[in-house]
């Protein structure tokens, strides 16, 4: 595999649900260590696209390639092997309710990767520590806050050593004061070089991380480009119009990225890279 081969590539994905073309010939690819952000109004197909990328929703046509190799979706074995390498974070966490935080992270390590209980436990503890939840390992999902649940979900995905992470509006179901702790974990991941495709409405936060914004509407990719270009004053882009509208609605201004920082628990804070302030000023 050459340096230039994308980690994950989707070619001409089409998905029709109930007669609606939810995805209309969508293609995208992502290189190692890159962060791409999907934005757009609800119903645009962002969530469907992400779930098509790991076949949770099987696309009606199109191809998916992992490191240049097409995924043979009819082979269940290959599908499972592929999904192990693609981490997925859901809007509503989807933690396994009958398992503690530790067991949530551990279960797939044992069942899918075939690790011993001891090995899997060690790894799970390490991943929980990474998201700042080492002390919550024995708690069950019902006893965790939304932010903590999403961090456990991230730890659970990371434990599988994914090559790419798909994040489907990871903070949309959270109370405002809990968003920050999750964004901090995502920022740390990006800085650690994790390849990510992220659907979000956290425009200023994602502008500071993203190599590329992908604006979707009615099942198509309408615009794509660097956040700086798309959000530049006077860019006249569809993205800019959309983003300024949701910024108005949520009262999100230049400071919103920082509010994330202040909400965190303190494990993994010192991010503050320089690109962020610049991107936010452009909003």
């Amino acid at each position: 595999m050459s340096e230039a081969t994308p980690i994950l590539e989707a070619r001409s994905l089409v998905k029709i649900l109930g007669g609606n073309r939810v995805l209309e010939n969508v293609s995208l690819d992502i290189g190692r260590g890159r962060v791409k952000v999907l934005i757009g109004p609800s119903g645009a197909g962002k969530s469907t696209l992400l779930q098509c990328l790991n076949f949770l929703i099987p696309p009606d046509s199109g191809h998916i390639l992992l490191e240049g190799r097409e995924v043979e979706k009819t082979s269940k074995r290959e599908l499972c092997a592929f999904r192990q390498q693609v981490g997925m974070i859901f809007q509503d966490f989807n933690l396994f309710d009958h398992l503690s935080a530790l067991e949530n992270v551990r279960v797939a390590l044992m069942k899918v990767k075939g690790m011993s209980k001891l090995e899997a436990t060690e790894r799970a503890v390490a991943e929980l520590k990474r998201v700042g939840l080492a002390d919550k390992a024995t708690l069950y999902p019902a006893n965790l806050s939304g932010g903590q649940k999403q961090r456990v979900a991230i730890a659970r995905a990371l434990a599988m050593d994914p090559k790419v992470m798909l994040l489907d509006e990871p903070t949309s179901a959270l109370d405002p004061e809990l968003i920050g702790e999750v964004l901090t974990v995502i920022r740390d991941l990006a800085q650690a070089g994790m390849t990510m495709i992220l659907a979000t409405h956290q425009i200023s936060f994602s502008a500071s991380l993203a190599d590329e914004f992908i604006f979707m509407e009615r099942g198509r990719i309408v615009e794509q480009g660097s956040p700086a270009d798309l959000l530049a004053r006077g860019a006249q882009s569809r993205t800019q119009a959309f983003c300024s509208k949701i910024s108005e609605l949520t009262g999100e201004s230049g400071q919103s990225g920082q509010s994330g920082e202040s909400g965190q628990s303190g494990e993994s804070g010192q991010s503050g890279e320089s690109g962020k302030a610049g991107a936010e000023r452009r909003l």
Binding site: Q51, N54, L56, K76, C80, A81, F82, R83, Q84, Q85, V86, G87, M88, F90, D92, N94, L95, F96, D97, V107, A108, K111, V112, A153, R156, A157, M160
Partner: peptide, 15 residues
């Protein structure tokens, strides 16, 4: 059970 439980398990590579 919420459909998300099966989705999350599949997403982790479980059969």
């Amino acid at each position: 059970l919420p459909a998300g439980q099966l989705k999350a398990a599949r997403a982790l590579g479980m059969t």
